[in-house]
């Protein structure tokens, strides 16, 4: 695979980034990214990954668009209400960047399919809205040894960390039990902020530039416009990633 004249022109401004170069762009073109969820986080994530020239985006979501999604799920419009989210997203993304491949998967991620769905991906992006599914993705990331970029949002707040199997705590080390499910308040710009941070992490991991958000969790407090950090550590007794669990 090589970069075409079209690629060199389309991605010129990011190829200029220090350390990025044409090699970085080629890495993006060769990459497959699995995006779990086409909602509040998934839509800005997919948008910025698409325009950055990720060669293959796999987007999984089981739901149809609801009118109440439209304050934040920017790839879905009024005309898409009741359509499958992955179809609605694919339609906009392929118009935004016709040179990339998009695989929409209208599927519920469960313990049976999660390994097959994520196999072969270079990266998994957590754009889910619940912990049970996040834990499945976490397990698949460990099984396949794939970096996993976790994020969650609530109101004007967000959390993000980059999980690299064997190198950082896993999601179960950080959140050992799921908080209760709820209809959460959220401003559309919040997953916009956190989703674009996830993309920044994704592109750093794929190209090797910068330093990833590892072993620390970033907390975004939009209400007071503050960022905080929590140092996070592997749990030696983690049922999912500890040596004991893996052996």
């Amino acid at each position: 695979m090589t970069l075409t004249d079209y690629d060199l022109k389309r991605y010129h401004r990011q190829i200029l980034i220090r350390g990025f170069d044409e090699t970085g762009q080629l890495r993006l073109k060769q990459a497959t990214v699995f995006i779990a969820g086409a909602g509040g986080l998934g839509t800005p994530v997919a948008t910025y990954l698409a325009v950055a020239g990720i060669g293959h985006l796999v987007i999984a979501d089981m739901d149809v668009v609801d009118l109440s999604n439209l304050n934040r799920q920017i790839l879905h419009w009024d005309e898409n209400v009741d359509q499958y989210k992955v179809k609605s997203a694919e339609c906009k993304l392929s118009a935004m960047n016709p040179s990339i491949r998009i695989t929409p998967l209208q599927v519920k991620i469960d313990e049976h399919n999660v390994y097959a769905l994520t196999k072969g991906a270079d990266l998994i992006i957590d754009a889910m809205d619940n912990y049970p599914t996040r834990y499945l993705l976490n397990k698949a990331a460990i099984a396949h040894n794939i970096p996993f970029i976790h994020a969650s949002v609530w109101g004007l707040e967000g959390r993000i960390t980059t999980i690299i199997p064997g190198k950082t705590p896993c999601l179960e080390c950080i959140v050992p039990e799921a908080p209760p499910r709820e209809v959460f308040p959220v401003l559309g710009a919040t997953p916009g902020v956190i989703g674009t941070l996830q993309v920044t992490e994704a592109i750093k991991i794929l190209t090797g530039i910068g330093r990833p958000l590892i072993n620390r969790m970033l907390i975004y407090d939009g209400e007071y416009m503050e960022f905080h950090e929590i140092a996070i550590e592997p749990d030696p007794k983690c049922p999912t990633c500890s040596q004991k669990a893996l052996n």
Binding site: G40, M128, D129, N130, Y131, S152, I174, P179, P191, H228
Partner: peptide, 29 residues
Amino acid sequence: GVTIKDTGGLITPVSDGNEIKVFPPVSGG
């Protein structure tokens, strides 16, 4: 700024002027 997981949990000592942050996980996406 230091997690109490590293300092003994709830028995971690506090003193005048300390700032304590309490974070729940959030689940939205």
